[in-house]
Structure formats: C-alpha cells, structure tokens
C-alpha cells in the first residue's frame, strides 16, 4: 500500500448533525438497555453464568424491567429516526457502501499488519462491515425484544424467531454481538481519541483527496 502524500487539510463536517444527535441518544439508551437487560437475564439465566451484581441496573427484577421498558422507547424510536435518516439522506449508501468481502479481507489483513491508514472522514471496509453489523444487531434486538414482549399479540413475529424460547436466545446473542461491537468501538476510540471529538463537534481536519489513486 502506498503512503498518501502530505496534502493540505481543511476542516470538514464528517459526522452530520442527525448522526451525532442519534449517536449520543443511542449511547445513553444502550447503556440503560444493556445493564438492565443483564439484571433481567440474572432472574432466570439461560446459560450457566450470571452477570456481576455491580454491572446491573435497577436493583431488583422489577426495577430492572422498569428501566428496560422505559429505555426501550428511547432505543427503538431513536434507532428508527437514525434508520430513516440513513436511508432517506443516503447516509448509509455514502458511508457504508461499497462493501465487498474482498475489500474486508484486504483491509483486515492490512490492519493486522498495522499497515492500514486511518483516513479521516472515510471508513475502511472493516469499519463499514462493523457498522453495518451494529445496525443489523440493533434491528434484531428490537425485533426479538418485541417477540418477547408480545408473544401472544404479535405471535407471527415470535414464530419468525422459532417461538418464545428461541426468541430469548436470539435476543441474548444479538446483545452479546452488540456488546462485542461496543468493546471494539471503545477500544478504537481510546487508540484514536480525536474521533471522540469529531463525534461531538462533527468536524475534523480532512486531507484533500489525492487526484491520482
């Protein structure tokens, strides 16, 4: 891979306002959903482990459920606004596409050999895959959550997940996937802290695109 030549940088909006607002609302909502969800899991663990008591929200099952069923509106409605914006304003198309297995493989190998260049304002293929996966996991969490909340009223949806007991497992696995994404996401922000500033101000110094690629 060639190293990009030094080019003049200019301050550009790399995260649109809608993305920034929905990102931070989502951060709060996911915090509440995750830690209250762990407390609910602990009431009847699906697997032979429980979450540590210091990492759960709500104090007791009733409190945890109250948090979960309050924050779910924030998570779902904010997520819906983000999806609508992403599709209508073509944010998904410009930020996450094109995305091909070949590109993911190439960028993943480059990243592991520490040869992947961080281009401000443009996602590499691994990032694109991760963000698309996070969106898919979020949609899966809301859909499987609805299947668990209303397995009688919305039984067609619950059946789509293979019934109530399978919906519990899907909900758990999607949570685990999203938690994994968040760990990776936070680790990368810790490595490149300027990205945190950009998600607040929306602006970053972006190198001019070289004319020859």
């Amino acid at each position: 891979m060639t190293i990009l030549p030094e080019t003049p940088a200019r301050l550009t909006v790399i995260h649109p306002l809608v993305v920034r607002i929905t990102h931070w609302i989502n951060a709060v909502a996911v915090f509440c959903m995750l830690f209250s969800g762990w407390a609910i899991y602990n009431a009847s663990p699906l697997f032979p482990f429980a979450f540590p008591k210091w990492a759960v929200l709500g104090g007791w099952l009733g409190g945890a459920l109250a948090w979960h069923f309050a924050a779910m509106w924030l998570f779902a409605l904010n997520g819906l606004a983000y999806l609508a914006y992403g599709l209508v304003a073509r944010h998904f198309a410009t930020a996450f596409l094109p995305l091909s297995p070949g590109a993911v493989w190439r960028d993943a190998r480059a990243a592991l050999r520490l040869r992947l260049i961080h281009r401000v304002g443009r996602y590499n293929a691994v990032q694109r895959l991760a963000y698309v996966a996070a969106v898919v996991l979020g949609v899966t969490l809301v859909a499987s959550g609805c299947a668990l909340w209303k397995p009688v009223q919305w039984q067609a949806l619950t059946n789509l997940f293979g019934g109530y007991e399978w919906a519990r497992r899907v909900h758990f696995l999607a949570m685990a996937g999203l938690a994994g994404f968040i760990l990776l996401h936070l680790a990368l922000v810790a490595i490149v802290p300027s990205t945190l500033v950009a998600m607040i101000t929306g602006r970053a110094r972006v190198a001019e695109e070289p004319t020859v690629r």
């Binding site: 008591k53 210091w54 929200l57 709500g58 104090g59 007791w60 009733g62 409190g63 109250a66 948090w67």
Partner: peptide, 9 residues
C-alpha cells in the same frame, strides 16, 4: 449501587 439508589422504584 449507592450511586443508583432511588433508581429501583
């Protein structure tokens, strides 16, 4: 959890 007491109904 002292930080969060009064957040449990």
């Amino acid at each position: 959890l002292t930080l969060l007491s009064g957040c449990d109904l």
